[in-house]
Design a protein around this nucleic acid. Structure first.
Length: 201
DNA sequence: AAGTTGCA
DNA sequence: ACCA
């Protein structure tokens, strides 16, 4: 395990997960997605997002014409599946938080998918970090400031990297500018899965 | 409002 | 690649 890299107060653990661990995680996630299939979310302004989304845990983050919020059920009406133990173990290893995450957002990036600069601020307590796990294709991650505007910095995240956004990084605007589609062999059809773990209440 | 585009 |  390599020492964490700091980028604008985000602690990035390169290659935190071995290839075998990544493969086991992907198998767990396939089980989750059978219960809670990926959906293409719509923003409150009616624009389709380019990422496909699902979740595990008590709460899932959702967006539609009504707004951004946490919901206890998938849009189908079914409860979200539990967060896999292997995912919880990563949180316990890096978060420094005594509380367990209540949401594991599952974002799937296909070719050309992006995530615009945004803040994670739909949670009640910002003293808990957000933990982000990268699986599959490389992603160009960008991080800025607590408010829109100003300088930003970017880094390529690779499969198995784990990023912790806590403290000064917790409310920074961040996003994904680009995916190097096909750069990893983890997912046979290509693409990237990002897991974000959060304490919601 | 977690998007999109045009321009430096 | 980056920003308004």
């Amino acid at each position: 395990m390599t020492a964490p890299v700091l980028l604008r107060d985000v602690a990035i653990h390169p290659e935190f997960l071995s290839r075998a661990e990544q493969e086991r995680l992907v198998a767990d996630l396939r089980d989750c997605l059978r219960v809670a299939p990926l959906v293409t979310p719509v923003t409150p302004r009616g624009q389709k997002m380019s990422v496909a989304m699902s979740a595990a845990g008590r709460f899932g983050w959702v967006t539609d014409r009504k707004g951004y919020r946490y919901e206890e059920r998938h849009p189908s009406g079914a409860p979200w599946p539990p967060i896999p133990d292997r995912v919880l173990a990563i949180w316990e290893a890096v978060s420094g938080s005594a509380q367990r995450p209540e949401c594991c957002l599952i974002n799937w990036y296909g070719e050309g998918a992006r995530m615009g600069l945004h803040q994670d601020r739909d949670e009640a307590d910002f003293s808990h970090p957000v933990v982000s796990i990268s699986l599959g294709d490389d992603a160009l991650f960008r991080i800025g400031n607590d408010r829109r505007g100003g300088k930003t910095e970017s880094i390529w995240l690779k499969s198995g990297d784990v990023a912790v956004m806590g403290g000064a990084a917790r409310l920074r605007f961040h996003g994904v500018d680009r995916i190097r589609f096909g750069s990893s062999t983890l997912l046979p059809k290509g693409g990237r899965i990002n897991l974000t773990l959060r304490v919601v209440r």
